[in-house]
Design a protein around this nucleic acid. Structure first.
Lengths: 348, 348
DNA sequence: TTTCTTTACTAAATCGATTTACTAATTTAG
DNA sequence: CTAAATTAGTAAATCGATTTAGTAAAGAAA
């Protein structure tokens, strides 16, 4: 099986009795601009199509410094929120001739830095990053090096870099207000102790809604590593005498929800029917769960499209003059059974 | 902000008054072999460490033909089964200095071929592929071109290529036998009409178990595109007079489970408590669902490790002589409430 | 002492494109 | 009719490594 080697630009030049320069000009659509005659342009274009020539991308990259590879760095690619976004980005990128390399930073600063360094050395055209809280200066240095960066899910206040996020404060406010409207009064906001902007903004939204009606806030913060049902249980036991001190829970992110429901189920299988529940990030199982679960749904498709659009804008800019874009989308509260009026007063 | 350009091999050579050749030899650990003196080796190694030199990977790729990029082509990266595998592969790859580019083929032959072609043109070192059913010849041509390939989740009978799968037949047999043991007699096997090996093997396992006890098989096949609760409902209505004709369901893959539970819940919220349920592929929500759901759990970690090990074996081989490896792991049936003895006789 | 090895390196070709700086021929302007 | 400008290309350098095919000097063998 001796498949013939793929043709190179030089072969085409030789075959058509023109110089490699001419072929390259035509390939890159610069024929007209470079005063190549229509006859020659046509001849080259036809031949290229005929043999199905594809330029050697590595060679192109070496010469041009562009790789057509984009990095998508998320917290954990196996988290459904991120894998969904990944899928959307992937699809758009492909239509634009870009490849996506993904990596998970585990929300760890060291790992984030290592990954960025690793990819920086490999002529990456741009970065989509869900930044861990402590890598502000690393992001800054990417900007300084003029590397295209788009942050998403969270961002750094005051850093001159584009980002795509949702209005976390409003989303959390709405979700909390929805519980209040349904007569819940003792609403726990379960969150992590990380300083990520998206989590802080959600907390602000919750606090704003609670303050507005003058209820008592029940803030419960977990160490954000190792979130399990057991740890959630511990946190509840430390904070409250009995679970009947409260009447509803707002889970501030998707991995808390999983552990949280598990904890509720273990504590008392009926609890989930008695408490009001809302959660951040929708999940396919929420509308087949019993009860179905009310969730803040992020517009993933829009987020992905916006990220890609901003990235392409940056990539097409004349050096150093793409303006910084901040896209903030509203999220949607999908109301389901878990947040409806309950018998909480009597039952708990 | 004028950051100095990254040093290149030539700069090192000039600085240390040796030739680029020598530096390259030392860099690649061939100093001894190429008779470079210990003094010079040490000098070069020290200097490299001092300035933190990192070779330009694109240039290396052009020269060596190796890119240290592996492609992971799955059906859909946002399917949790695949994103979990992706995460595992990613982690191992990183420790070995490889990057992973992922893509989703939607189980579509055309898209699969396009993607493979796209990456073939880009000096990819190897492919992990979940093949759609009709790309046998494309895989064959990868083999012919001596491109490292590892198939997983499914494979092609008789194709000389390594693969990592689970023992689908045995897993399905065990799951079915488990239902039988718990006194279920009218067991539906819900599957798709695709010719993918893993689906066919699961079906065989089901049929074997059913035949062994002489029960009637209830095989229900859906067109594998566009699996929704509505379509599942339609299929059931066409096949059965009433749902009480059956007493249990075996969902043969994870996206059928989602639609299936939705269908059950819509038809009658109590149904899921009355029917016996087992499903392929575990999910975090299955042990917090009510009832908790019995599932065939694939050993993702082992699968990922095996894939990577085989790939590295192929990459390190002397041209053309890596033996073909077929890894088949057992799956584990995680027994939960949904498959326990029910009151089906009286209730349905 | 001469020849053959071995040691310790290096020059230059190469991977496959892009791009700058040229040239020769033809047109246009003055 | 000559000089300037335009047209239609091309030669060669370049991107940053790796690797083949050498060479000069020192040591060993004859």
């Amino acid at each position: 099986m001796t498949s013939k080697p793929r043709p190179k630009l030089k072969d085409i030049a030789k075959e058509l009795h023109v110089s490699p320069t001419t072929v390259s000009f035509v390939l890159n659509g610069k024929g007209k601009e470079k005063n190549i005659s229509d006859v020659v342009i046509k001849k080259i274009e036809d031949y290229i199509k005929e043999i199905g020539y594809q330029p050697h991308t590595i060679a192109q990259s070496l010469r041009t410094g562009r790789s057509r590879i984009l990095v998508l760095m998320v917290e954990d690619i196996s988290n459904p929120f991120f894998s969904r976004i990944a899928r959307i980005i992937e699809d758009i990128a492909h239509t634009k001739g870009y490849k996506i390399v993904f990596c998970s930073n585990e929300n760890d600063d060291l790992r984030s830095r290592e990954l960025i360094k690793f990819f920086l050395e490999r002529s990456i055209d741009g970065f989509f990053i869900v930044p861990s809280a402590g890598i502000r200066s690393t992001i800054q240095s990417l900007i300084d090096h003029n590397i295209p960066v788009v942050l998403f899910d969270r961002y750094f206040e005051g850093l001159p870099v584009s980002h795509v996020i949702i209005d976390n404060e409003k989303a959390a406010y709405d979700a909390t207000a929805h519980l209040i409207k349904n007569n819940f009064k003792k609403i726990v906001f379960l969150t992590t102790d990380s300083e990520q902007t998206q989590m802080l903004n959600r907390q602000q939204g919750y606090e704003k809604a609670i303050k507005q009606v003058g209820y008592k806030p029940y803030l419960l913060k977990l160490p954000f590593t190792n979130v399990t049902a057991v740890n959630i249980q511990k946190a509840f036991l430390e904070k409250f005498e009995t679970i009947s001190e409260i009447d509803s829970i707002f889970f501030s992110t998707n991995y808390l929800t999983k552990g949280g429901i598990e904890f509720l189920k273990k504590t008392d299988p009926q609890l989930i029917h008695k408490l009001g529940i809302v959660t951040f990030d929708d999940n396919d199982f929420f509308n087949i769960y019993t009860p179905t679960i009310t969730a803040v749904s992020q517009p993933l498709e829009k987020i992905g499209r916006a990220m890609m659009k901003i990235m392409l804008d940056i990539l097409q800019r004349k050096k150093g003059q793409a303006e910084i874009q901040h896209k903030i989308f509203p999220a949607e509260l999908i109301v389901r059974e878990s947040s409806g009026p309950k018998l909480h007063k009597e039952n708990i």
